[in-house]
Amino acid sequence: MARKKIEFRPDPTGFDWAGKLLLTQKQRRSVLKWLLYSLTCVAGLVLQDSMLAQLRLLGGCFELAPALIILICVLEGTENGSVFALVASMIYVFSGTGQDRYCILYLTLAAVLAAAFRQGYLRRGTGSDLICVGGAMVLYELALFATGVFLELTYSARWGVFVMTALAGTLGAGAAYVPLKRIGTIGGNAWKE
């Protein structure tokens, strides 16, 4: 006969920094999840600056960091994802990799729209998440392109390059999808739909 598993666990006796912060276990896991999301974005940013900056996909650049920010927002939903998108897009712009201040608005808006569309009209899944990321990247890049044309920094014949940039970014997000989804499961699913 199988022995009943004892579920009792004694309180930890050692010094615990997280315990000192008076956080519940759920909050600690939540902190860990957002920390890992942030680290992934920073890694994506550094990768974009150092290794991917000189690569081109049919003329399009690999804008990995914006795609990761949008993907995280889609995975987390509009409530929490929008706050993350705003903060992350600010860091992205301050890092010098983002074109200018207007990227904060474009990126936050694109991320929120992608998350809202996914939540409102599509079932959760890899395909639907990446379609939303791709759509939001196209929206973001075309907003950048329109601003560039308006400010005479680029010219209208280059719209295709911006679309390719969006696709290249989405490919990058696709590569990071599995680890980010795993990070999203830390602390249990936060969304209710």
């Binding site: 929008s82 706050v83 998108a85 705003l86 712009v93 201040r101 904060i104 608005l105």
Partner: peptide, 20 residues
């Protein structure tokens, strides 16, 4: 989907962009 919080974030994004 566009809850009060999301609307606030979007307004904050606009303000942050303009101020910065």
């Amino acid at each position: 989907i566009f809850s009060k919080r999301v609307r606030r974030v979007l307004i904050a994004a606009v303000l942050v962009t303009i101020v910065l």
